[in-house]
Write a protein that binds this DNA or RNA. Sequence first.
DNA 1: CGGGACGCCTGTGAGC
DNA 2: TGCTCACAGGCGTCCC
Length: 272
Amino acid sequence: MPELPEVEVTRRSFGPRIEGARITGVRLGKPLRWPLGCDAQALIGQTIGATTRRGKYLWLPLDRGGLLMHLGMSGSLQFSPLPLAPPGAHDHFDLVTSRGTLRMTDPRRFGAVLWSPALDRDPAAALLAGLGIEPFDTGFDGAYLHAALRARRGSVKTILLGGDVVVGAGNIYACEALFAAGIDPRTRGLRLSRPRCARLATALRDTLAAALTLGGSTLRDFRDAHGAAGGFQHVARVYGRAGEPCTLCGTAVRRIVQGQRATYFCPHCQRR
DNA sequence: CGGGACGCCTGTGAGC
DNA sequence: TGCTCACAGGCGTCCC
């Protein structure tokens, strides 16, 4: 589910409201990807700072260390100043605070809540170490992308998904950005010219920005921390549209598999 | 080191 | 209706 826009939309929807709150209780459900990494009771009494995001990770700083959160494939967070309903089968983490409760729901449990002594110390540091540049960083442009792709033999779609060159694009936005840039997703990184890299950098930023404005994509169950659905799925040009006509040229959108993930593209508008 | 496959886990929809 | 199978928004790990 959650790619950069969904994670950022989630952050904005609860971060400011929980900042300054004091933790009064912690409830753990079924195991997520990793154990919490600390005694849950040790979190009680600590104050939450300003929530930040790096790639698709969220960081909630505490008085002692902080919590690194990831929504995995099916995770979402909700925040309410009022007591929440009793936890359901997929509610695996409740952070009860003086301002309200933050709850992580994640049916597939690929998500994570992990305590770390600091963002730049393990385990957080190890998880963030290989991440590429933020797409909204001013350093992310055609020159950067061109230099980063120069030695890469893999397909540009797979590279975008990898997150080690630039973070934030998952399957939806990688497909959509490549469509917007007119680039065939099978094109090898090292084959992309500097001008096409510039187009791709712009396309990725614009695609993610549009998704942010629309509150992310709700294909099935994504909601922000207040329960609001996203709207980007209504403006997607290729994702999930196999066989349907391209909105630009009418050619049937194709679905192929790259790295065991579905890729959607227009074989006419997107060129190698 | 780059690249590709695997596995984590559950829900859903299609097809029989 | 009920069953089986393919597939789903991510990513750490392992192997070549």
